[in-house]
């Protein structure tokens, strides 16, 4: 599954059942909006991989507020890659 919505974020699903969103190049606050919109559509146990070109500092309080958590994982050079999942209670 792959697609690009009107504002330009690319969203696709990998064979390991993770959903990816690439928000590189989008002007602020579009990355924040696109990521939160996607996350809110995801069910329990979902994992979202974010491909970003900078550290999205405003995202983390928003994620915490809705019970999600972020890990930084290895990405390409110049990329900030995050792995988002629901917080364990």
């Amino acid at each position: 599954m792959t697609g690009r919505d009107a504002i330009g974020a690319r969203v696709w699903r990998e064979s390991d059942a993770t959903t990816h969103i690439d928000v590189r190049g989008l002007p602020p606050p579009q990355p924040l909006i696109q990521i939160l919109q996607l996350v809110q559509r995801m069910g329990d146990g979902a994992v979202v991989i974010v491909h970003h070109d900078r550290d999205p500092v405003w995202l983390y309080p928003e994620l915490a507020q809705i019970g999600w958590w972020a890990d930084v994982v290895d990405g390409d050079p110049g990329e900030v890659r995050l792995r988002l999942a629901r917080s364990t209670p």
């Binding site: 550290d55 983390y60 972020a70 930084v72 900030v80 364990t88």
Partner: peptide, 27 residues
Amino acid sequence: MMAVAQERPPPTRRVGGQFLAGAGGRL
């Protein structure tokens, strides 16, 4: 939740914003 934990690849850093170190220059 368990399923998520089992699927989870080993992260390079466990963070809740420690990754803000990357944004430290902006904070």
